[in-house]
Design a protein around this nucleic acid. Sequence first.
DNA 1: CGCATACCCGTAGATCCGTACGGGTATGGG
DNA 2: CCCATACCCGTACGGATCTACGGGTATGCG
Lengths: 126, 126
Amino acid sequence: MSDAAHAHPVDPDRVAHARARLPSRDEAAQLTSVLSLMADPTRARVLFALDLVEELCVGDLALALESNEDAVGYALRLLRTAGLVVNRKQGRVVYYRLADGFPEPLREHCLRQLVVLSEAPAPDDG
Amino acid sequence: MSDAAHAHPVDPDRVAHARARLPSRDEAAQLTSVLSLMADPTRARVLFALDLVEELCVGDLALALESNEDAVGYALRLLRTAGLVVNRKQGRVVYYRLADGFPEPLREHCLRQLVVLSEAPAPDDG
DNA sequence: CGCATACCCGTAGATCCGTACGGGTATGGG
DNA sequence: CCCATACCCGTACGGATCTACGGGTATGCG
């Protein structure tokens, strides 16, 4: 029977405590959707690049990432739709930069911090 | 032609600058894999719950999340494989808690901070 | 020893995501 | 006016990811 958990909570107190403070599944989905946007190599590197040089057009972005325009274009589409980046059109060229309201703690503590974390491997399964 | 970007960089200087400092695609994949682990409603709530009450068995976790054992079991498997949570077996019951080396900044600045961010909607596409 | 519980694992199915491709629009130059 | 450039969009395909299901192992109880 995998469909249901046990009927007798082992720690009813802790279950109630967690249950009361836990974000709802809908709230969790909302905040994880933001996280999902950075949880992709291409998008993460796009954000890194824009953080480094402030502004870059699509073609240069593809060059900097050693990627192609398709991948970068798709990444920018999602980032733009989410409002994490904004664009400025000058002639035929479209320049992208991080949005003014780009989450500072997210950039500082997620992206940059994760570089450090990825260098510290996790212990094996128990 | 979507396969290649333009041959003439608009800002060769910025391209070179970004290219030199950018994490490689492999490094990016490694750090985004960590991010991907939290970028799921079930796993994020599991981590939230364990952060709140320190220790919880699988069944109680499913109760607290109002989920089923399958979803929680799968979430714990990935979290455990990645070394983000550890388990302790007492009799038939398996208790889970956050790993000792669980990234503090990740918990503090990603999970908790994202709750605030999710409440500030992003502007529309430009 | 036989049964129920608590959890784990492997597999199949559905669903989502990222990439590749073709075509379209707007700008700029000859 | 015609063509090349820079970028965007819609579609189709391959791959990854999550869920659901059946079965397996270990513990505790009578």
